[in-house]
């Protein structure tokens, strides 16, 4: 298949004595939707946090397009092309929906204090671009009717979508969604599935962490399963579904129970 975008090479992550990730190797390929699943506490979000620079891995390397992420600061990782949403919504609540997205769009902009005070032509151009792009994204996510509402006053579904819009605004190559369907009803989940597929059509690579097996199995090209910080399966959704180790992990059967 196509080239590897993100390469998780033997990553171990320890907190004190607790091993959250144990020698996990994972590759995300250009243009695919990879579902990352696992029972609670399996290390999915830790995976995410290592990827986006929140934690530095104890051992192993994470590289993006061949670049090692370890030396990059968090905001630089965004600029390299990884964007994320949060499991527990973390919008800028006192800003409007549009402004939230614009913060994301600003990641690719250059004008700073001098430009803003003098209103240089570049600054005005960038500002216009940010605004238009952000509005487009709000429309794409179907929430542009509330563009000027404070994020904290948006309904829950809007907030979830706004998180995705904000992440997309940073023009990522890889979009990481952390349980985007949490708290959604089946109809909303269906809409979200379509949205994720639409996002991929636009050329983004998507990493999807999800609890809801239906969502993952439907939209993912490939599924990786984590359990107790270890990768126990990686393959096509249909194969993974029938993998005994995965079934055991989800049903809570211990390997050495017999």
């Amino acid at each position: 298949m196509s080239e590897v975008l993100l390469d998780f090479n033997n990553v171990t992550m320890q907190f004190g004595g607790v091993t959250a990730l144990n020698e996990v190797s994972l590759q995300i390929k250009q243009g695919e939707i990879l579902g990352l699943i696992g029972p609670n506490g399996a290390g999915k979000t830790t995976c995410f946090n290592v990827m986006t620079g929140v934690y530095a891995p104890t051992l192993g390397t994470v590289s993006f397009e061949g670049k090692n992420l370890a030396k990059l600061k968090r905001f630089e990782i965004t600029k390299v092309g990884i964007a994320r949403t949060f499991q527990n919504i973390r919008l800028f609540s006192e800003m409007t929906a549009l402004e939230n997205v614009m913060v994301g769009a600003d990641a690719r902009k250059k004008a700073s204090v001098g430009g803003a005070i003098l209103r240089t032509s570049r600054q005005r151009h960038e500002e216009k671009e940010s605004r238009e792009r952000s509005m487009e994204l709000l429309q794409f996510m179907g929430i542009s009717d509330r563009a000027e509402t404070a994020a904290r006053n948006l309904p829950y579904g809007y907030q979830r979508r706004l998180e995705i819009a904000r992440a997309l605004a940073t023009e990522p190559k890889l979009l990481c969604l952390d349980e985007p369907a949490a708290g959604f009803n089946p109809a909303e989940k269906e809409e979200l599935n379509e949205l994720i597929l639409k996002i991929r059509e636009q050329g983004y690579t998507v990493l999807l962490i999800e609890h809801d097996m239906n969502v993952v199995m439907k939209v993912s090209d490939r599924v990786a399963v984590l359990d107790f910080g270890q990768k126990i399966a990686d393959g096509l959704p249909a194969d993974v579904r029938n993998n005994p180790a995965v079934i055991a992990a989800y049903l809570g059967v211990e390997d050495n129970a017999s």
Binding site: T52, G53, V54, K73, R74, F75, T78, K79, A83, R84, F86, R90, L91, F92, S93, E94, M95, E99, M102, V103, G104, D106, A107, R108, K109, A111, S112, V113, G115, A116, Q123, E126, E127, S130, R166, A167, T170
Partner: peptide
């Protein structure tokens, strides 16, 4: 401007701002 938005974003949620590419 971009500067003001970055400031407010930092005030609201510094970690999230940084992960959205703001050089906090």
């Amino acid at each position: 401007s971009r500067v003001g938005r970055a400031w407010v974003a930092i005030r609201e949620d510094e970690d999230a701002a940084e992960l959205m590419g703001v050089n906090t």
